[in-house]
Design a protein around this nucleic acid. Structure first.
Lengths: 249, 249
DNA sequence: GGTGTTTATTTGTCAGACAATTGACTGTCC
DNA sequence: GGACAGTCAATTGTCTGACAAATAAACACC
């Protein structure tokens, strides 16, 4: 029953999964050195290029890092928040762009999670967080700011809010949600009035966090969500009006 | 300035990044076929194995899929929720296990996000969701259940709760948080009394969802979080007592 | 004892080859 | 003319063997 079935998957995929299981299950610990490519090739009964493809798969997920030289080899990576973060953003961005997700759905998810952070942020915010939020607020009032920079500032503002919750796991999760939406937001051209209103809502959030008023913060975020959806809806409607239903082929 | 600096990264890493950028930026759309490996090798001025390593990196992130045969090749993948999900779980699991995250922090993040789903779940739950939750509740009352199966049922219960919010983006995010914690929870041996109490709290959550009472649901989840942390804390303390501070090397 | 050099090990890359798979083309038979 | 089978070409999957580059340890030399 073991060798009867022709392997449906590639050898390199199998090997990668085998090694990944070893890492996830703790049979290979952080910092451990994997056998050399030649040894792995012999162990699995394949050639070195095949092993290398498997290792590259793991490297793509930041599970291992490779160094060459006498004491080189592949080492089990310490998955930092930063690396996890980066993958989270890539995955979330693609998920959003490839699945025709209504902006409303994405917004809802994002603000739901952000509201989850709010009580913690209110309880634990430091002056550093407040300073960051106020600094971004100031930038957002600058009429010279490009739309892209405005969106970037928006992201920075919300990141500061999330970080104020002082829970790295939450920060990591939210980073994906917030930053993945930036490309979507970048498609919006903001009028001066839009910006003023968004900044005002941001100010309400900041004030609530400073006052450690979780309920007010929640309300401000809810209002911000509603306005964001409204704005985006208007943009989409305008775009749809300009390029009406795909002409049939 | 272009060729002066010796490339610090591998060629295969560069190629992978180049192709990934093409995908993320939309220059390659879902379903598009990439050039064949031989063509890519020529384009980038490298050999085919190097191209293959790059492609394997992208495959590891579910960005492409490969098929062989006359019309085969590498195609830009449609990133399904399922695939994103799987990566999310792997990443989150590793992040939790490798960063010595206090269980309290992980719990806090998870329940914060789950509470974020609660109002939506209350508003939108269908009878199917309620049925699933009640079915898992029934399983959890079975004294014959192993600890692993109990944990698995716990995960299934919370997944049903999250899915009831009817927001796929939220489901995808939460799946990582909930399932990544399962290995941690599996380390806990539950007494009959623990199980009874957890089941009771689950019942309270279910009743609140059925009654569409968001406040009660929030309260029940908060109580559940507190009890989970308490339980885990007791386990950790017992373990620490048995194996006191690492003896110096 | 300190310093510079050699050397062994390991990854990164290349070239060429063959097997396996799969769709498309083609020719035959009804 | 149409259905069916065989052949073919394109492409990925894998192997072999080789060389280059990096790197730390061992070693020779002063």
């Amino acid at each position: 029953m073991s060798s009867a079935s022709p392997p449906k998957t590639d050898r390199s995929t199998e090997i990668a999964r085998s090694l990944r299981d070893d890492i996830v299950a703790g049979r290979l610990l952080v910092g451990d050195r994997l056998p050399s490519e030649a040894e792995l090739a012999e162990q699995y009964g394949v050639s070195r290029p095949t092993v290398r493809e498997a290792l590259k798969r793991l490297a793509a997920q930041s599970l291992i890092r490779s160094r060459r030289g006498a004491t080189g080899g592949a080492f089990v990576n310490h998955l930092s928040y930063e690396a996890a973060h980066g993958q989270q953003i890539t995955t979330s961005t693609l998920l959003l762009s490839m699945n025709a997700i209504p902006l409303e759905t994405a917004c809802e998810a994002r603000f739901a999670m952000e509201r989850a952070c709010a009580p913690l942020a209110c309880a634990r915010r430091t002056s550093a967080h407040l300073d960051t939020m106020r600094a971004e607020l100031a930038r957002q009032s600058d009429a010279q700011l490009s739309d892209e920079a405005f969106c970037a500032s928006d992201v920075a503002f919300h990141r500061a809010l999330v970080d104020a919750a002082a829970n790295p796991v939450l920060s990591y999760q939210l980073a994906g949600a917030v930053e993945a939406m930036q490309p979507l937001m970048n498609m919006i051209t903001f009028t001066a009035r839009d910006r003023a209103r968004i900044a005002a809502l941001h100010r309400a959030v900041t004030d609530a966090v400073e006052a450690q008023d979780a309920a007010a913060c929640d309300a401000a975020l809810t209002a911000l969500e509603r306005y964001t959806v409204e704005l985006a809806g208007a943009v989409m409607a305008r775009r749809a009006a300009k390029a009406p239903a795909q002409p049939g082929s």
